[in-house]
Structures are given as structure tokens and as C-alpha cells.
Nucleic acid binder design. Structure first.
Lengths: 345, 345
DNA sequence: CTGAAAGCGCTAACAG
DNA sequence: CTGTTAGCGCTTTCAG
């Protein structure tokens, strides 16, 4: 057994490829060759190196490798607080896809200046690329220094003015489907609980819904459009309380997010108003919770897994061939009918 | 305006401290001094460097800095899939605490070999430390090479055989409180929905509950102890369906996790059995969802924020003074009474 | 106070 | 096939 190298204070020094080389009786570069595996090494020496690697429990110093290769093996994912249950699902999906590609995921919080942090990380080369899950028009100036060849991808939300690859759901048609669903079942007084327009997802869902209704000569009464200050359970609840206390209360409400819809259902519950007996409630996202007995929410499902998978893939493509063209992809969405909005015959 | 350096293929080269030095008319080491700020620099030259820094939009290369300083500015957090809503809340809290400390968070998925990945990252020096949120006895061998001075901290779950700092909740007394709550309100037939014992949280909650009942001469009938194969809505639901179909069904159930409890409530709902009229249901964690109208879950609250804050602090302490002693801290928990288990007088 | 110079550990030419 | 060598960009002595 060799003597471990030690600092003056007695700490064990980390094992370097030099230590491995010494132990295997080869040069340091041969160790490197075995590690990277792209250059031919005689099988017997390879075995010797492999053995030394194992015995010393060696792991290459990532910082040193990064300096040479320019690759860190990590990507930043900028996402909102995880209080909206759609985001954990999306983050999980991104993590899984990244893991498959051998990449580490650094999470940055959009509400805590995460986008600026990600921009800094990219310039500092501490990540190979960035996935923006919650970009807004506000983001545009932050990324103005980058062109389509930059390793940046948007998922979930879209920002048309940005030149990067973008993967989102087809929110317009998903919401239009909700509108037609209401009309087909003769819902007369229709309401909308929406959110700030800064998120493209919200804007598209709102437009898709309202336009489809207007196209059918059934425009929504402007008094029935509630714009929540944020996407949260409490905001959905408050908006619904307001709607339900009107003299002529609506008979169907579309909420641009499941979280708002769940707050809305809870508001109805508080007032002893039956969902769907007295009022239908529909959400958007199809989070896990939407399928559980407490809510049984009719909603539009978004392909979060697919979005994540494609986002990571687009990022990897960009790293390999920066000049390939970028595009905005819209994945199909689908109405999922459950108890919160359905007819019984 | 200076010429940007370019690669042969025409890409803009990243700005280095050399570029900044040249522009400011000083040596590269002076730029470094200004950057690190620990060495005195004449104010006028400092200003000149600062200006150049700004103009070139410089960001120091993290890999190069890491090589010199040994610090990466990132920590790994190993956590389970985010499908149990307690974990996003915990991760959010950790992220926030880490951000405050100027650290990036790399998320690793315990179910996808995240612990091994974290161990590798630590040896590769791609992270400064590791927070294990979902460690089990299984983890022990992975970390056997490390002693108390290693930058590793456990939060949420505890593994006694590990020598690291550990921050958890007082699950035993929280669960005992549930037991006494049941007894005080005369609940006779008491059941438990628990989970695999590999998680210390589960083991402690289970023991705390059962021991408190036994101490009061009200031991739980072994037929009323359901051990779910995993912590999920579906497992909670199935366990509850079984309990409710017994001839003498229980009048109170404690679930070792809110997610199980929510599944249990949904099972009761399916069978038209009233909660809390026919049966009380209590969970553990106090996730956000527990307070919403669809479940109104009585549960034991855990200080996730505090756990995260302390975990990050413990890690930072370890980095600064590796020899300080480690300990297992148990933060207080608290019964939160809501509709799923309460009496009306 | 400032510049010159030595490496951190690795990869990738370049010579044998 | 293998060893020698030159840096990657930064921090930190060491000399002025």
C-alpha cells in the first residue's frame, strides 16, 4: 500500500492522474488516454492502469478537465418556485432527460434572479447550456448578446423575440377545445380565470379560449374575466369567490392553470356550490393532483415529459452543431374529462 | 472598440482577465486582485479595471478559478423524485438557503443512483459538498470512505451509522402527539398506514405512534397496520380501501406521510365513507395541499425551511472548519388540526 | 502598490 | 503504442 499524499495539516490529498500513473508505472498521459478512451493503448498496460484507477478510487478533477475541453457536463435550468405543482413535474422530467445525456442539472429560481444567474453562469462557463422554463419578454434584454447559435433553449413558455429553439405545448388549440366543450354542452354563462400576460402560456390559453368562444358568437362577458395577480391556490380561490357572489353566477369557468382551478373548486366548496352540478370548472396542465379524488379536475394535459426530453435534445444539438437552425415546436395538448366538468348521459 | 478575439471558425472567444488587463493597461494579476478584492490596489487603477470589466462584460472562468481555489461554488442535493409534494418544498427551501450563501444547487435523483453520482461529484471536486435528503442505511457503504470532516450533511432522514451532521424533525414526538390526540378523543379502533422502514422518518413516525399507544394500553391490532410498498397516492388509497372493507373498520388512521393520507381520504370518498364522520385521517409533513379545501388534512408539520437552512449552514461550517464536531439535530414538529380529524364541540 | 512567474490537473499535439 | 510537453485561465507568491 502506498503512502497517501497529505497536506501539511494532515488532510489526505485528492488522488490525481499522476498518482495513478505512478502506481501503474506509466506516464500520466497514458492514464489520460485510458480515461478518455479515444486513443489506442496496449491491452496489458490498459489493464494495469485500470487496476490502479480502481485501487486508488480515482475520479478525474472536473475543473481541470473543463479547462481543456470547455465542457462542464452541467446545464442550468431556470424555473419558478416549485409551489405550482406543474413545475416539479417539469423539473423531474428535465432531470431525467439530462441524466440520460450525462449532464448535471443546476436549478435556478426565476423569482430569485435565476435568469441573470444563468446568464452569468454561461459567461463564466460553469454550465454548458441553459434551459429556460419560465422566460418572459423581460428575459429578452438579458439574452440580447446571444444569437441562435447560443446553447440556450426555452421550454414551456415561448418568447417570440428570442432566437433560440423553443418547445411548448399547443395552448391555443387546447384552450379552444375547452371552449367548444363548454358550448357543446350548452353552458351559457362562461367565465375565465386567467393570470398575468407576461407568461406566454397564459396569454395563449386566454386567447385560444376567448377567440374560440367569440368565433362561435358566444363572447365572454368582460365582467366574467378575472385576472389573478399570480398563479396560486389562493388567487384562484379569491377569483372564484368573486364570480360566485355575482347575482348571475357563471355556469362554467376555465382556469388557465390547474392550480387556479383547484383554488376555484375549493371556493365553490366553501360556498356549498356544487361542482359540476352548479358550475363546471376546467383547468390546464393536468398535474397529478388533478386526477385525485379531492378534485377530479377536467383539464388540458400538456406533454411535460416530451417537452423536457426535446428541450434537452435541442440543447445537445446546439452544442454539437451551433449553426443548425432553431425553431419553435408546439406539442399537442389534449382535453382530459373528469368529474369537475361533465354531463351524465 | 477593440477587436473581439475569434476562433479560426469565427466564433467570438470568451473574454479573459488578460483581455481586461490589456484594455485597462495593467497586468493580468492586477485584474485578479481587483476581482478577488483581498489585496490593496490604488483606487485610480481599480476604477480603470472596473471600467474595463464592465465594458467587456467579463465573467471569470469558473473552472480556472476552481483549480486554484479548490472551491466550485456548487453543492449537490440528493433527493427523491419530486412526486411526493414534500420534496419540492424541501428542495425549494434548500435552493433558497444555498442561494443566500452564494452556492449553486445541483439536483440529483436518489432513485436514479443520485447518491453514487453525488459521491463521484465530490471526488471529482465538481461540488464543494453534498446534502443528502433521502439517505438510508443503504447509503452507509457509499460514504464509508469519509469521516466527520467530510462536507456532507443529512437533512430530513437520519442514518445513525453515518458520522456527518444531520438535521431532521422530531418525528417520534410528533407521532406520539397524534396517538394521544386519538386517545383523548376516544377513538377506539386505531389503524396505521406506514411505508418501508428504510426511511428513518417512516421508522420513527411508526415507532413514535405505536409506542405511545402501547404506553397507554391501547396497542394497535396488527391487522390494522398496513405497510405500503412506497409513499404514493395510490399506495395510500389501496391500503385504506383494504382497511375500510374489513368487517370492523377502524375509526382513526394515522398515515406516516401526507401523500399516503391524501390517498386514504380519496379511498374513503370512493366508498362514501365520511372523513371525519366515520373515520379520522391524520398525515405527516403538512404539505401545502394539506391545507386546501379538497382534503383539509390534520397533520404534523415539519419545519422544512428551517431544516434546509440549518443543513446548508452545517455544510458551510464544515467547509470552513472541517474538524468541528457533528451532531444530530431534531427540530420540533407540531400537530395541525383540520377537518380530516376533529370533534365538533 | 504593481508586474512577472509559477503552477492547479488535465487533454492533446508532437515526437519518438 | 507511449512519453514529453505545452498550455487552458486563474490566484498567489515573489520581487521590485
Amino acid at each position: 500500500m502506498e503512502q497517501k499524499r497529505r497536506t501539511p495539516s494532515g488532510d489526505a490529498m485528492p488522488v490525481t492522474s499522476h498518482d495513478v500513473a505512478q502506481r501503474a508505472g506509466v506516464s500520466q498521459s497514458t492514464v489520460s488516454r485510458v480515461l478518455t478512451g479515444d486513443s489506442a493503448v496496449r491491452e496489458t498496460t490498459r489493464q494495469r492502469v485500470l487496476a490502479a484507477l480502481e485501487e486508488l478510487n480515482y475520479a478525474p478533477n472536473v475543473a481541470a478537465r473543463t479547462m481543456k475541453t470547455g465542457r462542464t457536463g452541467a446545464i442550468a435550468v431556470v424555473i419558478s418556485r416549485l409551489t405550482n405543482p406543474f413545475y416539479p413535474e417539469l423539473l423531474d422530467a428535465v432531470s431525467e432527460a439530462a441524466l440520460e445525456a450525462g449532464l448535471h442539472v443546476i436549478v435556478m429560481n426565476a423569482e430569485m434572479d435565476g435568469e441573470a444567474d444563468a446568464a452569468r453562469a454561461l459567461r463564466a462557463r460553469s454550465v454548458d447550456g441553459v434551459i429556460l422554463a419560465t422566460a418572459t419578454e423581460e428575459s429578452a434584454k438579458l439574452w440580447s448578446g446571444y444569437d441562435r447559435s447560443a446553447p440556450i433553449v426555452l421550454i414551456n413558455r415561448v418568447v417570440e423575440s428570442l432566437p433560440f429553439a423553443q418547445i411548448t405545448g399547443d395552448h391555443v388549440s387546447g384552450s379552444a377545445e375547452v371552449a367548444r366543450f363548454f358550448l357543446k354542452h350548452g353552458r351559457q354563462r362562461i367565465a375565465l380565470i386567467t393570470a398575468p400576460l407576461s407568461a406566454s402560456t397564459t396569454a395563449e390559453r386566454e386567447a385560444g379560449f376567448l377567440d374560440a368562444l367569440a368565433a362561435d358568437k358566444a363572447p365572454v362577458n368582460s365582467g366574467n374575466i378575472m385576472r389573478a395577480a399570480a398563479v396560486s391556490h389562493e388567487e384562484g380561490r379569491q377569483a372564484m369567490l368573486f364570480l360566485l357572489r355575482q347575482p348571475q353566477r357563471p355556469t362554467a369557468v376555465f382556469c388557465v392553470s390547474d392550480l387556479l382551478a383547484i383554488g376555484a373548486i375549493d371556493a365553490a366548496r366553501e360556498l356549498n356550490i356544487s361542482v359540476p352540478g352548479d358550475i363546471w370548472v376546467v383547468g390546464f396542465d393536468n398535474v397529478q393532483l388533478a386526477s385525485w379524488g379531492g378534485y377530479q379536475l377536467t383539464t388540458v394535459s400538456q406533454p411535460a415529459k416530451e417537452m423536457a426530453r426535446r428541450g434537452v435534445k435541442a440543447l445537445l444539438d446546439r452544442l454539437d452543431k451551433p449553426r443548425a437552425r432553431t425553431e419553435i415546436v408546439r406539442l399537442p395538448t389534449q382535453l382530459v374529462i373528469r368529474e369537475s366538468a361533465r354531463s351524465w348521459f
